[in-house]
Amino acid sequence: MSNNLNRRSAIDPAVADILAGAERKKRIASLPKAERAKARKEAARHKVGLDLPPDLHETLRQIAGKEQVSISSLVSFLTNRGIEDYKAGKIELYTYKRLSRCARFEYVLTFAPNDD
């Protein structure tokens, strides 16, 4: 059929996310009634999926290991500090913005300030 076409092996993260959600719902529905509420509560824990550059993810993993904290905890802490700095005007995002080619957003942020 399509033997000569190269097939990618990795599943699109967004598709995997959808399938995982469906699988979780199916699993909860199969539990005894008494356990469903607890499982739903557990599933409703606030989880978000964000795109991170692989290098940054690795750095977070290393720091979390060194400090013996979870990556989620470390990201929450550092993000909170960043937000405080942003609110205090210590971080000006405009120097890090460049035009995005994505329809949803005007800009993307770079790690190094733009010269122009």
């Binding site: 097939r7 990618r8 092996s9 990795a10 599943i11 699109d12 967004a14 598709v15 995997a16 959808i18 399938l19």
Partner: peptide, 11 residues
């Protein structure tokens, strides 16, 4: 997804 893996885009 089982058949086409990463060829499947988000629906």
């Amino acid at each position: 997804v089982d058949t086409f893996k990463g060829r499947v885009w988000p629906p």
